[in-house]
């Protein structure tokens, strides 16, 4: 199916309705079961009288569940968009947002912050993790640069090597960590939304929305890019600029997403891949559809993570893989050969 503005709007509207449904369900389930009518009433009250929520349902929905859902949605969208971007940049549908080392850098930042006691300071962890990620992005960029151009294979190698190096340091840090730090580290490495609040959302929102918007403006360039660099050049694309933009923006939104919740795997790989199987590879549809699907998927996963073994919370990264992998296999099998 050829991608037209009409098709993009139709599919994205449907996916947006799906997202609203997922949010509604997620708001109503948990330790306190609330009916969807109750949820809607509280949301409307909250919208009319912003500020301090009223009553126990108000507090549960507006102060506990809603920020967590918004953050999970934002992170899911960011990781899915970054996944599309890295897959286009490396011309490999199996790439994911962590492939060029952003994750290892942010993990190193976060683990260091936990060990020196920064994790109790407000925004200590996100800041340390973001700095670690950005440091890695710059490092990989400079190692992966050949002359004035970015060579994707060199970039990939640089990412993998630097990633391995940082992982080694993280291993070392874990081996000397105290017990209570250890569980914090493990939760961060597997992803955790239990510290969500509106401030965190407001901090990462501009990075993720801005980055996604600029990435989307290059969508047609990505289509040409995945046909091969020479092809893209001969069809009029400034490939070097496109590669630089894709690398920097996708890394930036990945760094922002990871800094608030830790490493959540699978979203950035499976979502773009599934959307491609469902709606085709055109990035003009792939990017917004992936963002919406990513948001729904991660909100759903996080809902399962906090409810399935209540009162214990599972790490959301474990849930994304457990539920994502079978779904992915189903899509693979369903595809006409």
């Amino acid at each position: 199916m050829i991608v037209t503005p009409k098709r993009i709007i139709t599919i994205c509207s449907l996916l947006f309705c799906l997202l609203l449904g997922v949010i509604l369900v997620s708001l109503s389930v948990g330790a306190a079961e609330l009916g969807s009518a109750q949820v809607v009433r509280v949301l409307i009250q909250g919208a009319i009288h912003p500020g301090i929520p009223v009553g126990p349902e108000g507090i549960i929905i507006l102060s506990v569940r809603f920020p967590r859902i918004l953050l999970a949605g934002l992170v899911g969208a960011a990781l899915a968009v970054a996944g599309c971007c890295f897959q286009a940049l490396l011309r490999n549908p199996l790439a994911d947002p962590y492939i060029l080392g952003v994750s290892s850098g942010s993990a190193l930042g976060a683990v260091s912050a936990i060990l020196v006691g920064l994790s109790t300071a407000s925004f200590g962890m996100p800041l340390a993790s973001f700095c670690g990620a950005i440091f890695t992005v710059v490092l990989v960029f400079h190692v992966g640069k050949v002359g004035t151009g970015l060579h994707t294979n060199t970039l990939l190698l640089a990412g993998v090597i630097i990633s391995a190096f940082f992982s080694a340091i993280i291993m070392f840090l874990i081996s000397v960590a105290q017990n209570e730090d250890l569980s914090k580290i493990v939760f961060w490495l597997m992803g955790d939304f239990s510290f969500s609040n509106y401030h965190l959302i407001l901090i990462v929102l501009p990075y993720i929305m801005g980055g996604t918007g600029v990435i989307y403006s290059y969508a047609r360039g990505f289509n040409l890019m995945v046909m091969g660099e020479e092809t893209a050049v001969q069809l009029g694309v400034d490939v070097e600029r496109l590669k630089r933009m894709a690398y920097i923006l996708a890394s930036l939104i990945t760094a922002a997403a990871v800094s608030v919740c830790g490493l959540i795997g699978f979203v950035g790989l499976i979502i773009p891949h599934s959307v491609r199987m469902l709606f085709g590879p055109d990035h003009r549809l792939l990017i917004p559809a992936s963002a919406l699907m990513g948001a729904s998927f991660l909100i759903g996963s996080d809902t399962i993570a906090r409810t399935i073994a209540a009162p214990t919370e599972l790490p959301v990264g474990a849930v994304t893989a457990t539920f994502g992998a079978p779904f992915f296999i189903y899509l693979l099998k369903r595809r006409k050969v």
């Binding site: 549908p93 995945v226 491609r276």
Partner: peptide, 20 residues
């Protein structure tokens, strides 16, 4: 590696004439 259809590939030939 990306499953663009033949028509989509041929339409890519129009991209020098299209705005971003």
């Amino acid at each position: 590696n990306f499953p663009f259809t033949s028509l989509e590939v041929v339409l890519m030939g129009r991209s020098p004439y299209l705005g971003r």
